[in-house]
Simulated scan of single mutants.
Amino acid sequence: MGHVTRKERYDVCVCVCVCVNPSLFLLCILLLVKNGFVSLLSERMRQLQELRKQLLKEICASNKEAFSGGKHSLEDISAKNLKNLIVDDTHGIIYCYIPKVACTNWKRVMFVLNQNEPYHDPMSISADMVHSANKLTLLNSFPRTEMKARLRHYTKFLFVRDPFVRLISAYRDKFQRYNKYFYVKFARDILRLFRRMLNSCWRS
């Protein structure tokens, strides 16, 4: 694609502004396609993704022991450490969920995909239900040979989030908004620890 003109940038700005009206969403998409911004954005995202993948490979290869904990193959990894991998055999995908990285909504999606069509709205599924045991198929529920086959042939994906934003999100969701389970299991011990540290600082 050639040089992007000021007029084209203006068109996109206008387009973004009017998109607050859902009825104009299609017009926005058509305008973006016409000016080549969709293909340009797609190419930039692809390049950025390749750079990230290359950086990840280089960092992991630089010190395999530190990053793998000495675990170099599937046989070295316990079933417990594979509990975050959700399998969808129908669509051939494996989702690795990370808490506080939209995992509740993605669990909803994975649950809905395993139901019969027409699919339900994922947001109609309760959070408690998708976090319950045995509601989703986990990779560690299969024999090792079947795990290997799925890891080799299925599309695997995960999402990451800025660690500080993730920490703030966890605090607001689990501690600031009272949750008895998390208070009893985590918050109480954290408060005790930091109260002791604070008292120690005051005494010194």
Rank of each mutant, 00 (worst) to 15 (best):
N21T: 11
L51I: 06
T155L: 15
A102Q: 04
N199Y: 07
S169T: 05
L27D: 12
P99Q: 15
S169L: 06
N105S: 04
I29R: 06
L30K: 04
G2T: 02
T5S: 10
I29L: 11
L85V: 00
L139K: 08
H120E: 11
V4D: 05
R44A: 02
Y181C: 09
K7F: 03
G69E: 03
A127L: 02
K34L: 11
Y154G: 15
R9Q: 05
V165I: 09
F164P: 00
L40P: 01
A79H: 11
S42R: 11
L32E: 03
T155G: 12
M1D: 05
A187Y: 09
H3S: 09
F37V: 04
R196D: 03
K100N: 13
V16W: 00
F159S: 00
K174N: 01
Y154K: 15
M129T: 10
G36H: 00
R46C: 01
D88R: 06
K80C: 10
P143R: 04
P99E: 14
K71M: 14
I77M: 09
K180Y: 14
L27R: 12
G36T: 01
Q115P: 13
N63G: 05
N63L: 03
S169Q: 07
S42G: 04
V33A: 06
C15Q: 13
K185D: 10
A102M: 12
M147V: 03
Q176R: 01
S23M: 09
N134S: 05
N140R: 09
G92W: 15
I125R: 02
V160C: 15
K156H: 13
S132R: 05
D189R: 13
Q47G: 01
K71Q: 13
K80V: 05
